[in-house]
Design a binder for these strands. Structure first.
Lengths: 260, 260
DNA sequence: CGGGACTTTGAGCTTTCTCAACGATGGTGG
DNA sequence: CCACCATCGTTGAGAAAGCTCAAAGTCCCG
């Protein structure tokens, strides 16, 4: 399997590119994810250990097996997390976007410094904050709300992971694609309060078909055929390869949650 | 698919069967898992909210979708966690044994009371401690070490879950079975310090072939054939259906981590 | 010793994968 | 501004892994 991970000349574009004021208050991600949990004062303290970083599309910023030195908080863009086998087979374990917290998963007695058990790459241009892992963990007892938030983040990821195991172990290709489309819609917060939208739903998929295949445990051809069938059946429209419209979310959901 | 979950007349055998002294100090699980994290005094406080429960083989004690009322700590026996689709397809997301902490995974803003997103059943006779979820969460701030422990537990489960996604999404049936056998050996702590044993390794599998199949995302026939092939190839021996001997752990590991 | 549940084995079938060719798309340089 | 090229995506045909259905073999327990 040659050329599994097409790289777009990885370059660290802009290290430590703080917002103009240098304060979290001016950050676009101030009111989402981890940063939403903290008071301005707390954030001020943490900010000292943070660096703002911009990543080019395709750039890897966490490598499986390397020492876990940082936590990350994504401000914008989309990231793929994955594990790989020695022969190149890849399983994408998740996509993350603005507000998501990254870097909990390390080997050993966990929250202690160990080694990353996954790799992470930017899908498109990504802006994120990088925290020194040891420093943040040491300060954790000073920020009880943050510690609780981390637990919430971990538990939420666990819930998602279980759902994905069900998908990978027991769903057909068509069900997997339908499930993904709905999950992605929810993930984009296009579906308020987790409710299923009645109307049609417009969304863009930043990831390639290869990413989708490696996320859903099938091949790119199978992804393409499944999308084609959903299109033929009138459940979705695909005006462009990376642009999908959910025409009939309810029928899609029926398909996703198990052909009864 | 009829009769997916053979039930052995679920009966709550023995509620609140405290050890004779009524103290955690006399519990067989005192020095493992969560209970190992706490001081005797802390444990004393928590014990007030705990009930000791014995479950019969096959008994379900957590049902997906039901309100999350308790945490559990397993003292002995083996438990299967699973998710199911409306048409009966089942994915076992993990097996848990003595010392394991259970019940983090709930819907919604997580660590808050919500609904379980998985079901749990005893595989053999199981003894566990049941904690009131709300009470324990409320007391969490009094037990910072416990809170940190919960984070560690969640992170460790996440690491396992990612590994399982790689298995379900990208490994062949033979690789899955080989991976499972090694993981089970490590899980049983037959392999000290995560190192791969050179010598042969004796272990019992409390779960049925059906459980194995639903854990590894294949059918029971495929499990049987894969075990048969490993036996034919001299990698394992199967003196009884629920008793496996790893004859060549290294070759098994080579097979598990990817046929290169 | 007999019955039921579990496991193994076999044969044919279905879904998905593999391999290959074609088509679309977007960026680049003439 | 357009043609070209690289990459990505789609489509088709044949192959293979794993599934389904069926039957025989084991084992446990009464």
């Amino acid at each position: 399997m040659p050329d599994i991970y097409p790289q777009y000349h990885p370059v660290l574009i802009n290290l430590a590119n703080r917002p103009k004021s240098g304060k979290c208050a001016d950050c676009g991600a101030r009111h989402i994810g981890m940063c939403d949990t903290l008071s301005d004062d707390d954030l001020e303290l943490l900010a000292n250990t943070a660096q703002r970083i911009t990543l080019a599309p395709g750039q890897m910023f966490i490598e499986e097996g390397s020492p876990a030195g940082h936590f990350y908080n994504i401000n914008s863009g989309t990231v793929r997390l994955y594990k790989a086998l020695p022969d190149g087979r890849r399983q994408i374990t998740g996509f993350m976007g603005a507000g998501h917290f990254l870097g909990l998963k390390v080997s050993g007695s966990s929250a202690m410094p160990g080694h990353y058990v996954f790799s992470a790459e930017a899908i498109n241009e990504v802006q994120l904050c990088r925290f020194n892992r040891t420093a943040l963990l040491a300060k954790l007892s000073q920020f009880p709300r943050l510690e609780r938030k981390l637990l919430d983040v971990a538990v939420h990821e666990l819930v998602i992971a279980q759902e994905q195991m069900l998908l990978l172990g027991r769903k057909t290709a068509l069900e997997r694609v339908a499930s993904f489309l709905l999950a992605w819609a929810a993930w984009q917060e296009l579906c308020p309060a987790g409710g299923l939208p009645e109307t049609m739903l417009n969304m863009s998929l930043p990831m390639s078909r290869m990413d989708l295949a490696d996320y859903l445990g099938v091949t790119i051809e199978t992804i393409s055929r499944a999308l084609g069938q959903l299109k033929r059946d009138g459940l979705i429209a695909i005006p462009a390869a990376q642009h999908v419209i959910l025409l009939q979310p309810r029928r899609l959901a029926a398909l996703a949650d198990a052909a009864i």
